[in-house]
Design a protein around this nucleic acid. Structure first.
Lengths: 314, 314
DNA sequence: AATTACCATATATTTTTACTAATGGAGTTG
DNA sequence: CAACTCCATTAGTAAAAATATATGGTAATT
C-alpha cells in the first residue's frame, strides 16, 4: 500500500499558513504572495477543514494562531526546512559537485582506468567514483542490470542495445623473452610466427577473440600451448621463456622499461583494437556520468600514459 | 522574507513518485492511484522539470530510479513520515488527549479553582493545565491580549466584547469575630450593621464593587476603617477583633470549621454574586477549552465544596 | 456616527489537472 | 517476424481547483 497519508494537505496551503502566521495577517500574506485576500482565506479555510480544527482566530483586528495552528505552523516550518535541504542536494547534483559514478571495466582496464579516475576525481571533489574490475561476462550482466553508469571494455557485447564510443587505441602486441631469437627480426611473417609456442588468454576473452578474428581473416589459426586467465600470468610465462604471448600494449608499462619483455615486429601487428566507453542505450546519464564521458573522450590522451612500441616501425 | 521554497513541487507529485518508484512501473502506479498512465507520466515529467534532472530511466521494460530520483524518493519518504507525525498530534488534539489549557482567574478563585482543575485533569491525562491567579486588572489585559483560553472572575469587564456564563454562586457574607456581640442576632438591619468598623478590600476590587452597588441600591454607603488587598489579611484582621469584614463565602472553608470566624445574619445578605467563565467573544475554543467549559458548567457542584452558612436561615 | 482596517463569503473566471483516444517508439516474447 | 508490453506524447474535452471581483460584517478608530 501507499504512504498512508490521509490528509489532502497541499504544500501551497502550508506556504500560506506559514506566511499568515508569520505576518499575523491574511491581507499582508496575500500581498507577499501576490494573491488576493480571498484566495488566502479560502486556502486557509480548506486547510482548517482538513485539520478539523480552526488554525487562526480573529479577535478584534488581530489574528492569533490557535494551538492546532501552532502545531501546523511548526509542521510547515519543518517541511520548508526539508525543501531547503533537498534543493541544495539537487543543486549540487546539477552542478556536478556531488554524487557518485559507478564504473565497471574488464580486466585489462586496470592498467589505465585508474588514471582516468584520478584525473576526473581531481576535478570533482565530492564525487564518489567506484570502479569494479571484473571479467567480461560480469561486465555484461552488470550492464544488463543497469548497475553501473558506464562500462569500459574492448569489445561491446551485442546481447543488449548499447551506445559505445571508442576513446583510445588498444594495440595488441606479440611479446617474447628479450633473448628470444625473433626479437631482432623485422616484419616477421605470420606463418613463421605461428610455429612458436603461444601462451594466450582463455577462449572468449576479448584479447583472444581479437586474435582469432585477425587470424581468421587470413585463413590462419593459432593453438595455445597454454591458456591463462590473467595478463600477469601470461607475461610471467613469457618472461620464463615458455613461449610467446599476445597482450594489450597497456599491460606492459613496466616490463618494457625494465627490458623484461620485448615486442616482436610481426606482419599485421599490432592488432589495432580500441577501448570503448559503453552505456546502455536509453540510459539517462547523470550530470556526473556525462561529465566523466566527456572527460574520457577529451582528456584520455593527456592522462593515460601509453607505452611506446620501441623497436617497430609501423 | 518567506521560506524560500523555490520549488513548485506538489505533494501529489511526491505521492506519484513514491508509487512509481515502489512499483517500478508507471502503469501499475496509475492503477494503484486510480489514474491513467498519461496522467502519471505528465506529473512525473513536471516533477522532473522542477528538479531539473530525470528521476527515472527506462531500460528495456524496466524502470529505474536515477540518482536524483533516489534523492527525491528519500525526500518524499521523509515528508510522508512528517505527515504521519502531525496527523497523530492532531488526532490527539481533536480527541482532547493532548494539548494545553491556559486559565486566568481573579484572586478569590484560588479557593475553588484548584478543585476544578484537579477534577478536569483527572479526566484528561496528557492535557497541561495552567492557571494564573492575579488581580482583576491583569485578568482583563490578559483577555485583551488573548493570552488565556478562558478567565474566571466575579464580574466580567465591559471594556471588551466577551461571552460569559455564570457557573457557581458567589455569596458575599459579613464576617465577625466569634465573640462579636452581633453574632447571635438574627436579621441585623443594615443601618445597625453600618455603625460597625469595616475592613474591606480596596476600591475597584470585585468584592468591594459588589458591596457598594448593593448599598447604593438602598441609598446607603460604607466607609472602611481599613482597606486590605488580600482576603487573608481581612480575615486575620477580623479574627484580631479589628472590625467586621465582607468576603466571599468561598474564602472561609477552614475558618468556619475551626470557629475562628462567624458569619452574621444581616438583612439582604448574603449578597448573591456569581462566578463567571469568561471568553473573548469570537474566540474559537480549542476542543480542550470547550471540554473544560462544559466540565465547569456541569460538574462544578460535584467538585467544589461550598462551605455551609451555619447560623443563618436565608 | 462615520471611517477605516480586516476577514468572510458568494459568484464568476481562469488555470490546472485529468481523462479519453490515438499514435509511436523501444524492447521483449512467442 | 508478429504480437505484446510499457512508456511518451498529442489533441480534444471534461472536471476540479485556484483565483479574482464584488460585497458584507465586525470591531477598532476618530
Amino acid at each position: 500500500m501507499g504512504v498512508g497519508v490521509g490528509m489532502n494537505v497541499t504544500f501551497r496551503q502550508l506556504k500560506l499558513l506559514e506566511a499568515v502566521a508569520r505576518l499575523s495577517s491574511f491581507t499582508r500574506a496575500s500581498e507577499e504572495l501576490h494573491l488576493t485576500q480571498p484566495a488566502v482565506s479560502t486556502q486557509i479555510k480548506q486547510l482548517e477543514d482538513e485539520v478539523g480544527m480552526p488554525l487562526f482566530e480573529q479577535l478584534g483586528k488581530k489574528i492569533f494562531l490557535t494551538e492546532a495552528g501552532r502545531e501546523m505552523y511548526e509542521f510547515s516550518r519543518n517541511i520548508a526546512r526539508q525543501f531547503v535541504d533537498i534543493e541544495s542536494v539537487l543543486d549540487d547534483m546539477r552542478g556536478v559537485k556531488r554524487g557518485s559514478l559507478k564504473l565497471v571495466a574488464t580486466a585489462t582496464c586496470k592498467y589505465f582506468a585508474p588514471y582516468l579516475l584520478a584525473g576526473f576525481s581531481k576535478l570533482h571533489d565530492n564525487v564518489q567514483v567506484h570502479l569494479e574490475i571484473t571479467n567480461r561476462e560480469n561486465v555484461v550482466t552488470a550492464l544488463q542490470e543497469n548497475v553501473p553508469d558506464m562500462a569500459i571494455m574492448g569489445t561491446p557485447p551485442d546481447e543488449i542495445p548499447l551506445n559505445y564510443r571508442a576513446f583510445m587505441e588498444n594495440p595488441l602486441v606479440v611479446i617474447a623473452h628479450p633473448e628470444h631469437p625473433l626479437v631482432h627480426e623485422q616484419r616477421i611473417p605470420l606463418e613463421e610466427l605461428l610455429k612458436e609456442n603461444f601462451i594466450l588468454r582463455e577462449k572468449g576473452s576479448g584479447t583472444r577473440n581479437a586474435v582469432e578474428r585477425f587470424l581468421q581473416g587470413r585463413n590462419l589459426s593459432v593453438t595455445a600451448t597454454m591458456e591463462m586467465s590473467r595478463n600477469e600470468a601470461i607475461k610471467h610465462a613469457v618472461m620464463a621463456g615458455l613461449g610467446l604471448g599476445i597482450v594489450s600494449l597497456h599491460t606492459l608499462e613496466f616490463e618494457l622499461k625494465l627490458k623484461k619483455l620485448a615486442i616482436l615486429s610481426v606482419e599485421g601487428f599490432p592488432i589495432m583494437k580500441e577501448w570503448y566507453l559503453v552505456t546502455r542505450s536509453g540510459k539517462r546519464m547523470s550530470p556526473i556520468a556525462q561529465a566523466f564521458h566527456d572527460f574520457v573522450l577529451n582528456e584520455t590522451h593527456n592522462v593515460v600514459p601509453l607505452p611506446q612500441i620501441p623497436n617497430i616501425i609501423i
